[in-house]
Design a protein around this nucleic acid. Sequence first.
DNA 1: TGAAGATTATTAAATAATTCACAAATACGG
DNA 2: CCGTATTTGTGAATTATTTAATAATCTTCA
Lengths: 207, 207
Amino acid sequence: MGNISKATLQRYPIYLKALRKLSKEGVKRVLSSELSEYVNIKSTTIRRDFSLMGQFGKQGYGYDVDELISIFAKELGEDYDEKMILIGVGRLGTAILNYNNWDYVAGEIVCAFDIQPDKRNKEPKVNVPVYHIDQLKEKIPQGCEIAILCIPSGAQEIVNQLHELGVKGIVNFTREHFILPEGMIKKDVDVVSTIQELVFEVNSIHK
Amino acid sequence: MGNISKATLQRYPIYLKALRKLSKEGVKRVLSSELSEYVNIKSTTIRRDFSLMGQFGKQGYGYDVDELISIFAKELGEDYDEKMILIGVGRLGTAILNYNNWDYVAGEIVCAFDIQPDKRNKEPKVNVPVYHIDQLKEKIPQGCEIAILCIPSGAQEIVNQLHELGVKGIVNFTREHFILPEGMIKKDVDVVSTIQELVFEVNSIHK
DNA sequence: TGAAGATTATTAAATAATTCACAAATACGG
DNA sequence: CCGTATTTGTGAATTATTTAATAATCTTCA
């Protein structure tokens, strides 16, 4: 499945989200043209994207919503059951730990790390064990491949450690720059950059 | 400036972030090849991206870091001074309001809205006035074009209201689906989808 | 001050992504 | 159970983006 384009890959979670919403509303079948209106992606792009994973549409009929969901979920990692860790249990880290829509995600956050584990463990809203960051090596779950980084500074050193411990992917909320070790993948979630992009677009379109 | 490609546009904030870091470290000039290593983008792509905004590199010398910063900052909206609003002052909303790296962003969050404004206003960490969501029309700042959406549900109605009030761009933290009114721009910040993407990539590359 | 070396800017080529156009397959009403 | 209306799946065409190649320009040091 390594031949699916980057662009397509980024749309899969969008489709899955939309399909789940439709399913919840009781929709049993959907046309690529309907889905198109729903997610603002051209129907022909949708059909091509879908066809890359197999042929599960029916001409003259459309797609079966629940079938699509189960295929997507499988492909997108529902069955992977990743054991993830979170590093940095500040306000943002806590918000993520408490996120109430974790259903159907690729796995779960098993534990967290912080420089003040005692304090964090006392917080009523933190529902996984928090260990000291120095215990990373001892406490990281077997086979953990994904880490969520919510620390304000010192990212580079931690990323290097994670790399040595076999972590392959990082969801990065840090604004600090760090060099990504060979073979790792990083996804930035950056509110500031997102706002900048948006402002830029809004202003270049409307002015 | 409407002819700058989408792909390029998404890289501008990355450049700006990196350049600021370099500047803080005392770096006065930078080569596209150096920056390339720093941000993991091919140097030739960087030069092309830069050249779209004008010619401010010098052959045989490179780019002046501070000059680049001031140009980028201007283009990316530093001078726009957007008055932004935030809707939904839960854990995530609060985390955003308290974000400690707001320096240099395109504007500021002027006020927030919630269904429990009294409760939210009492929170020590909330540093802007919080109004009831029903007062949106009265309290929205003059010329506000950007809204940050952190509510768990009911997005569609609010988006429609925002549209009528002249808001043009939405930073969307909601996982709920909504139809984007004509002319509006939306940027999704979705941790769950991001993790799914990452898991998918990690698993398709390493297996 | 001039020549060598370095680095950008830009034209052209290659690659990636989207969209068109239509054949193939299916649904469905009569 | 046939014929028509739909709708998918996919080759071909188009458009967008990245990369390579190189011409133009600047720095720097003797």
